[in-house]
Design a protein around this nucleic acid. Sequence first.
DNA 1: TAGAAAAACTAATATCCGTTAGTTTTGTAA
DNA 2: TTACAAAACTAACGGATATTAGTTTTTCTA
Lengths: 196, 196
Amino acid sequence: MAKIKARLNGTKKDAIIQSAAALFRHKGFKASSMRELAEEIGVEAPSLYNHIGSKSELLQGICFKIAADFTQHLQSVENSGNSVIHKLEQLIRFHIRIMLQEYNEVYVANHEWKHLEEPFLADFLNQRKSYEKRITQLIKDGISKKEVKNIHPHVAVLTILSAVRGIEFWQRHKTAISTKELEENMVDHLLNGLTI
Amino acid sequence: MAKIKARLNGTKKDAIIQSAAALFRHKGFKASSMRELAEEIGVEAPSLYNHIGSKSELLQGICFKIAADFTQHLQSVENSGNSVIHKLEQLIRFHIRIMLQEYNEVYVANHEWKHLEEPFLADFLNQRKSYEKRITQLIKDGISKKEVKNIHPHVAVLTILSAVRGIEFWQRHKTAISTKELEENMVDHLLNGLTI
DNA sequence: TAGAAAAACTAATATCCGTTAGTTTTGTAA
DNA sequence: TTACAAAACTAACGGATATTAGTTTTTCTA
């Protein structure tokens, strides 16, 4: 029987990908070896290849899974009939939650995508670009509806997406503040600013 | 005579560090080889060792140079007698400027520090922590002086520092917007928010 | 319980890496 | 021009890497 334990739901391949995400997050993709990954799972390195195709494939699995999650959520936000500010709030909250929930995967997608090989690299970057573009359009709509101040839309998107990525740092202080408090404060800051 | 050209001001070692920063930024530290670095400079790999001690030393040079720049600037801001909001503005503007000015070095310090070896890794992380802590204290002061809204100070610092790091992405669109416009918009967004 | 399929193992390979040793070339100063 | 020092070169080493081939063990199914 396989020594590689599948999580209660999911294949062994999924279990490997999950371990890989943790390892890649901790050491970086290039600095992570298949031998290390195998050891963490309790198996010899070549045994991994009964379940996966290659090391690169692991990175691809992680990056495209996360990209799909974000794209799908954006789609549903766009389709909701809410105000622009409310849509932005939904997006910010989703980013924060998925960052806390699937920390390793999101971190890897954010930091290690450059080690994707073509044509996956180009595909990934296109998806990112399209995601940014759609949020930029959202802000433009907000400006023309006078819901949002007349700010440079692309700069605003950049500011929001980057700020939200910073939740990565929060993993260290997880106990010091609740998810809810973190969410409320960051949403308030990004939408309403710091001044009284 | 040396084929390695020193920049008009600076030693050959400095020229190597500068090339290393560009290479590490583009491919990541672990994925960058000394042979690649040498080729970019127009020399064989072993020749580099007439000027530098090791690959690790290059990363150290980059990371600690940037850390020192930020710490020094924070010191001067703390010593200025300005209001808290103005101090925050100064910090944000400095981050944006140095990010645009020393892009490669800042990027590497932000993304590749985890490949520092001990005791340098611990030293670097301590400096980061201290930097964050001092800005957190700044915001606390602002709150008690009623200059800043009653927000969670650590979350605010996180939001600002992360947002500002996102200028990295801006290198791609450099022509589309001026530094000044970028600065004004981001400062306005982070201090005053998005709503009208 | 027998046979098939899945998944583990060992051994090995070719490649790449940072770095050292030893030598030769180049530039500088007398 | 000669001697010294700086910095280039070639060759090579020891170690790590992802992956393959071939074999044995384990597990599932009938």
